[in-house]
Design a protein around this nucleic acid. Structure first.
Lengths: 231, 231
DNA sequence: CCAAAAGTGTTGGGACTACACCCATGA
DNA sequence: TCATGGGTGTAGTCCCAACACTTTTGG
């Protein structure tokens, strides 16, 4: 392995596919920002930017998310690294894509008020994207689908208190097919990761549903003793 | 997103975790190279090197594998990107790790004769590794484990013609536990991806086993109509 | 009392696990 | 003839899918 100063270095960026769940509209959404500069000026794109020279990659993703969308402390994971030589017309840019899951209930105000250059779009029905971001989105979506069934990540998208129907709707939206209500409830409760609260859903014009929360502590406990989540 | 020339760029490398199956010794192995230069001179490390400025990342991985170990046309997939700021003492280096599966039967000579600076080691019982390669290896192994059961990648490690016992041994080695012979055979044959050959195993001092091959074409056909492999 | 969603059990079939003996071959 | 691994079937259990009606609430 030769010493590297001999070679020109590519730029390294991070991009984030940020998923949010809109229960009111029964839609899975992604957060996009509108580019103010060329290339692709005016186009919508995934939030992201350059990795600083002394910054961890994950850190860069978190920082860019904060700077461009106001989001902080969201669930974030590395997705894949995209490095086609011509993906950015300016210079060689290698981008480490991440995907993030946010509770839209917590962050609704931010993204809605600052709508001039950051906005939520339905996953199906997003505008044309800059660079190879369409491809990145596609991979993020397929990863989310895969992940949902064998890891309890869906809760990152739900509000802290949710109904079983909310949970089911989430799974249906992401997986893209209808699920049987009774079977779904049985399986969900059988995970032992849901805690029934005293509280009931408010302000609906029909029978109110029980609220549940995700049992974070129990999940950590079970993870250590190597069990398998599945839904 | 500011224009990038403002910022210093990190170096970008690829590293490859190359797995091989040694049926003779019933061991899963990885291919390591011995470093000729500092840092970590004399230490064993994953094959890898710098991504050239106009080269695709996958290409770089393939090229380095070829240059350092003589391997070509192996199954290769991106694993994860490692970018801790201090992982290389010289400068900031971000490494896109890959993992590769090779049929040791095809490549046995290469790695064995050129043993001065490339050699196979048992996965458990490898020497201390340079950089953060231990961590990369750990992730590759866990990915391989996960992948094996729901994608037919194991065949990339087996010779073109293999016995069911070979296949079972592979699964046992990777998963780290014994499997029931009758159940394993039933499931393996039920996938419909194995073709029984006329040929029998040769040169064993007991009843000769039937040889099978993996049905590549059938697998492609089934993949398109969205089925799920599982073993 | 009507509309809307919440909530709840059973049954049949398919898949998985556990398990032990005979067979073919070469030395 | 012996040692070594190859090869085979069944029974019990568990899990999953399919399926429809009653309850609660607000309007």
């Amino acid at each position: 392995m030769p010493f590297s100063y001999e070679y020109p270095h590519p730029a390294v960026t991070v991009d984030c596919v940020v998923f949010g769940l809109d229960l009111a509209q029964s839609e899975l959404k992604i957060l996009l920002i509108q580019r103010g500069l060329d290339p692709f000026k005016g186009r919508w794109a995934l939030p992201g930017g350059f990795v600083r020279i002394d910054e961890r990659v994950e850190e860069a993703a978190e920082r860019e998310l904060k700077e461009e969308t106001g989001l902080a402390k969201v669930w974030l994971e590395q997705l894949y690294t995209f490095g086609e030589p011509k993906r950015d017309p300016r210079e060689r840019v290698i981008s480490v894509a991440h995907f993030a899951l946010v509770k839209m209930s917590d962050h609704r105000v931010r993204a809605a008020t600052d709508a001039s250059d950051a906005a939520w779009f339905p996953v199906t029905g997003a505008p044309p994207l800059a660079f190879d971001h369409k491809q990145i989105l596609a991979m993020a979506l397929s990863r989310l689908r895969g992940k949902l069934t064998y890891q309890p990540v869906g809760f990152e998208l739900l509000p802290p208190k949710f109904t079983l129907t909310n949970l089911q709707r989430l799974y249906e939206l992401v997986l893209g097919r209808a699920l049987d209500k009774r079977n779904f409830r049985k399986k969900a409760l059988a995970t032992g990761l849901l805690v029934a609260l005293e509280e009931m859903e408010q302000g609906v014009s029909h029978r109110a549903a029980r609220l549940y929360r995700f049992d974070e502590a129990e999940h950590r406990r079970l993870s250590k003793s190597g069990y398998l989540f599945e839904l």
